[in-house]
Design a protein around this nucleic acid. Structure first.
Lengths: 219, 219
DNA sequence: GGCATTCCTGACGTGATGTCAATAGCGTGT
DNA sequence: ACACGCTATTGACATCACGTCAGGAATGCC
């Protein structure tokens, strides 16, 4: 049974060992849920005694947070090196890059957002908020709107909300196949453009004249 | 300490007792996370011995699922009794109703979506999917588009995705206060209208002519 | 080869969960 | 009223996951 890897006793550099444990944890948490994966499982998968996990990460929760952190920081170069054209064009490209990234890192990304909002857990919450914040920065940068000041907070809030739709839609694509890549591109690009070019100005104006063009808000 | 409620031993109808336990669980899971709440806590809060939880619900997970189920079925009358006017008007009202509902059930709703996407948990997943499906039906009904057949699946997928934005935006409103109610109304109404009246037709047409009006999708 | 450093593990204590036989409340028949 | 049966309810037990600690085993240095 346990004879397979019972070679000797390997002694590694702390960083190296830490990385091995983290990799094992990433793999296991990727399949099961937080509760369904025991530290014993992780220790076994990493070829290590269970207490070593505590030694390197403190406790199970810390290890888990580390995994989430590492997964959620995926979307880095989505918005870098965009050409110097219109915001429409840049956003179109940016959306394309996003689709590339999630398609390439499919598994990792799905597990990452799978664990999204583990709920009342303040730590996980904070990690995800920060990721949202960074994402909002990226969008503003792609839209050449880094400088806007009027209604900036509202704008950022709407972009963060858009992030919720982005994730949901990407999941529709990857796991349900209810939208193909091209449809997704149209959907996501159109939505963010509408948000920035129509809703945002409307919102700035709307604070004064509460009624909007199409329909009179009743009661 | 424990002397307070140590009256006798109450014997209730199963349904009644079950409801009491569920209520206690709802309250506790509302505050802490799944892992942070022990069955002992719930039993104590319900004034009951711990094994009774297993008797009624099987195990802790089942109880939890029951709580999630009960919380996620909140938005019932959001779309009933809408006047017989344009879809713009009906959607505006529908969004208003939604805002009313989440504002009223603020705490319960927040905990419900807090536990959203517990991830690799297939059961929770299924519950949330079903709720999404129902929500999509409601939107289609409000939009007077129950009958559409062409691209129906894509349309539903986009509406489900919109649900992700709806939740994120509502949370922005309720917990961060980064958007006020009126701004949220403008945002959500405008987005769903754009989705139904612009993106959806675009998507139907776009399958043939891949380019769209504003920008040429590169490479 | 001896020794210090520190990486690593076996063994223990604690707390949480699920199971089971035994008990006690409540309705029923007389 | 009283005994009786049904079953809701519980105390006690077994199991398992997690965190801690002192001691054992590699590696580097002289």
């Amino acid at each position: 049974m346990s004879s397979g890897s019972r070679t000797k006793r390997r002694r590694l550099e702390p960083e190296e060992r830490r990385a091995e444990i983290l990799a094992a944890a990433r793999r296991l948490f990727g399949d099961g849920s937080y509760a369904s994966v025991s530290t014993s499982d992780i220790a076994k998968a990493a070829g290590v005694a269970r207490p070593l996990i505590n030694h390197y990460f403190g406790d199970k929760r810390e290890l888990y947070l580390e995994v989430v952190r590492q997964m959620v920081i995926v979307p880095a170069p989505v918005v870098e090196n965009l050409p110097d054209t219109t915001m429409e064009h840049r956003l179109t490209i940016g959306v394309g890059h996003w689709l590339d990234v999630v398609e390439r890192n499919r598994r990792a990304w799905l597990t990452a957002i799978g664990h999204e909002a583990v709920g009342r857990d303040p730590e996980v919450d904070r990690i995800l908020r920060e990721a949202d914040e960074v994402a909002a920065d990226r969008v503003l940068e792609a839209a050449l709107m880094t400088g806007v000041t009027e209604g900036r907070e509202q704008l950022r809030a709407m972009i963060r909300s858009y992030g919720g739709m982005l994730r949901a839609a990407s999941r529709e694509w990857l796991v349900r196949g209810s939208l193909d890549r091209e449809e997704l591109r149209i959907f996501l690009t159109g939505s963010i453009l509408h948000l920035l070019k129509v809703t945002y100005p409307e919102l700035l104006a709307g604070k004064l004249a509460a009624g909007d063009g199409d329909s009179r808000p009743p009661v």
